[in-house]
Design a protein around this nucleic acid. Sequence first.
DNA 1: CGCGCAACCTGTCTGC
DNA 2: TGCAGACAGGTTGCGC
Length: 276
Amino acid sequence: MPELPEVETIRRQLAPVVAGRSIELAVADDARWCSPVSPSQFASRLEGRRIEAFDRRGKYFVARLDDGASLLMHLRMTGNLLYVTPTGPFPATHVRGLIQFDGGDRLVFVDPRRFGTAEVIDDAGRLDAYFAARLGPEPFDEAFSPAYLYDATRHRRTSIKALLLDQRLVAGVGNIYADEALFRAAIAPHRRADRLTRSNTAALRESVRDALSAGIDAKGASIDDFRDAYGVKGSFQDQFLVHRREGLDCPRCSAKIVKSRTAGRGTYRCPGCQRS
DNA sequence: CGCGCAACCTGTCTGC
DNA sequence: TGCAGACAGGTTGCGC
């Protein structure tokens, strides 16, 4: 479900509301959610702390705590992070954990498939190391430059789609935005990465940014599960150019969009404008 | 070392 | 209607 635009949509809603709040209660209903520590260790690590800022890195939420630690949360496939008030409705099912603030408002982590995670990282150095091992540059940072993308695709014989899905290349792109970016750049998903020209990689870098920006502007894509922090759907699914549009007309050349499997994922492309 | 794929889970949809 | 099987927005770890 949630890729960078969906995570960013929630982050923008939550940042002003949770910054400065004290954690009165932390509950992990599912031990795997807060693994490797136990629910009781998780609670004692967080209770009494204050959240100073609520940031995002790739698809991770990063709640900065007043003792220098950070609470990371990842939604994986079906996670949702909801802001729930004492008088508002509480999610009926699939609650994996929650953070309760003074005053009774809560962040509630809901996740049917239980892939989502929460983890406390003790200090800035460890946080840097954690992300350095997993994530490439943020797509809107200068580091994600045309030269970077060209260089990073050299000597990579895998498909360009598989590379886009690798968070170490660039952080935050998932299956939806990979398909949309490749269509915008007119590059076939199964094209070998090292066969891309300098012009291809320059176009792709712009397309990744454009597709993610459009997703953020639409407050995310809600094919099925995704809801923002207040339970509202995004609308980017109404603007998909190729993703989930098998058999429909390509908006550029009106060829029929085809679905196949690339990098182990359902992949949509226009056979007319995305030639290998 | 690079790459492809199974595994982690549950819910939903499709086809027989 | 029931049921088996495929598939779903992500990441990790294993084997080749």
